[in-house]
């Protein structure tokens, strides 16, 4: 099976854990062709960047890797604020968490229904970035 390198214009990684960030970046190398990967330590930073991009007319990230537990503004709060922005572009958001709290899963299910974007739920550890995570429909089969 061959996975094609997907071309992605912009990717946001929002996580306060440097090791996770390192891992995601490393895994992306082999599956995505992206020149613009932005790292944010919390939701607030990422949100501010989103607004800036919107204002400057820069491209909105196609893919966001979003941690849930973060200081200042956590993943859920970020999602809430982002939905308010009414971004019309196609965005894939991957919620990444080490939490196995069923409450988090339920919250994700609730958000999935009202979120206009693709919302994935990924439990750590992550070993591979699936094409799905980048918004691809598998070419094979």
């Amino acid at each position: 099976m061959c996975i094609l390198m997907k071309k992605v214009s912009c990717i946001f990684i929002v996580d306060d854990d440097p090791i996770t960030v390192f891992g995601i970046k490393k895994m992306l190398k082999s599956v995505a062709d992206c020149k613009d990967i932005q790292i944010f330590q919390n939701g607030k930073e990422a949100y501010d960047a989103l607004i800036e991009r919107q204002n400057l007319g820069k491209p909105i990230p196609e893919v966001i890797f979003l941690d849930i537990n973060m200081p200042i503004m956590d993943g859920w709060d970020f999602l809430d604020e982002m939905i308010e922005l009414n971004i019309t572009e196609h965005v894939v958001i991957n919620m990444i968490t080490s939490s196995i709290d069923p409450l988090d899963y339920k919250k994700w299910a609730d958000f999935k229904d009202r979120c206009p974007y693709i919302l994935n739920f990924k439990n750590k550890p992550i070993f591979k970035i699936e094409p799905n995570d980048l918004g691809c429909i598998t070419a094979a089969s």
């Binding site: 090791i19 996770t20 080490s98 196995i100 992550i126």
Partner: peptide, 10 residues
């Protein structure tokens, strides 16, 4: 879990 996940990944 978050630590062990990191271990596994690394």
């Amino acid at each position: 879990r978050s630590h062990s996940a990191n271990f596994s990944m690394l």
